[in-house]
Design a protein around this nucleic acid. Structure first.
Lengths: 194, 194
DNA sequence: CGTAGGCGATCGATCGATCGATTGGATACG
DNA sequence: CGTATCCAATCGATCGATCGATCGCCTACG
């Protein structure tokens, strides 16, 4: 157990993630952000750059982590596209259950970014979704998944799994593992897994 | 074809729906909202009350319309819970495809409301979701739908269908009807329809 | 003449961001 | 060793802009 006290940078990022998730990017002022980080608004600029740069950084690192976790899970999964789908669902649901604020910022604040900053985030998101696209395409090609519109189905299943971030509570009736397995079952059903 | 020119009130509500959907409630200023409504910011107050009242009104009327459409569809559907589920999916998907800005405001700006205003909107949302809850419960009770966690499944399928508002384009490859039927199929699969 | 609808002007508050100044610990040098 | 230099980090003060909202006044019309 390494319970290091958080660095200033971590305190800023944690406060920003929490506030952006709760009140939105435009609903969060830099004074409030500084207060929750334990700094003055002037000092805050030493760590965050501009407010938008901070948001973009948070979104990119969250997406990079998610993609890395998905790649690792796929590397440990077998060849069967259905098993690989299960692995993606588990990673996605776990991430949204365990880091709901991070994922809600990624999913909900894209529109707050200027085109330049948005492009970088969108590229990372597309990279992540390509993992899903490939798995679903492989499954359909091999006749192990049955969907008429793979792109539509991918978006639908992704959003289905993302919804967890908006209701899951770690002190609720269901544990993370149960929720993940339940979504594995829903996703398999939706995609017509043989 | 009744192509009446929009009333001032309609122009305000349409501008607000568009802006709130695109830039968010906190990202939309009074002046911009007035400009797009063809009014000065002072005149705007004659029509909208406060900015928050306007948002709450938009959200309530959108939810009331959705609920009314869902009730009408259920009234015209048969007794089989699977058919009733199909009807709900079609209404939900059509609404999100044809009125993406309205639905995105409802789904995304709840957090911008003060507790008092939020309560009224949440009550309407619960009323709508109860229609889904009942249908799914009936289906499970009769053994025609198979899900381990009906509440979780309801949320998952709802979010799955809501995702349409974030990508559908009326000039794209798929029409509204096709998208709706595709989601009917996905929902049936996810909920294990016999 | 009353009222619905609209306007310009302006309110106090807050916005995101920057300024110059200060601190303290590390590093380089005589 | 002593001290000069540097730089990351922080601060109070304040910038111009914009925020949501309100005011009094004007005009058109039933």
């Amino acid at each position: 157990m390494t319970a290091t006290s958080p660095t200033t940078n971590e305190r800023v990022e944690q406060a920003a993630t929490r506030l952006f998730a709760q009140r939105g990017f435009h609903g969060t002022g830099i004074r409030r952000l500084a207060q929750e980080s334990g700094l003055t608004s002037a000092s805050l600029y030493h760590w965050m750059g501009t407010k938008e740069e901070l948001l973009a950084r948070l979104m990119r690192s969250a997406l990079e982590r998610l993609t890395a976790e998905a790649r690792a899970a796929l590397a440990g999964a077998g060849e069967d596209p259905r098993d690989r789908l299960d692995a993606l669902v588990r990673v996605h649901v776990r991430a949204h259950a365990e880091r709901p604020e991070q994922t809600r910022v990624v999913d909900g604040e894209l529109g707050a970014l200027t085109p330049d900053a948005r492009a970088g985030v969108v590229a990372l998101r597309d990279e992540y979704e390509d993992l899903w696209r490939t798995v679903i395409e492989d499954g359909v090609d091999q006749g192990l998944l049955v969907v008429a519109q793979p792109d539509l189905a991918r978006r639908a299943v992704l959003e289905m799994c993302s919804s967890v971030a908006r209701w899951f509570r770690s002190d609720g009736d269901l544990g993370v593992a149960e929720v993940a397995e339940e979504h594995v079952s829903l996703a398999r059903g939706a995609l017509g897994a043989r």
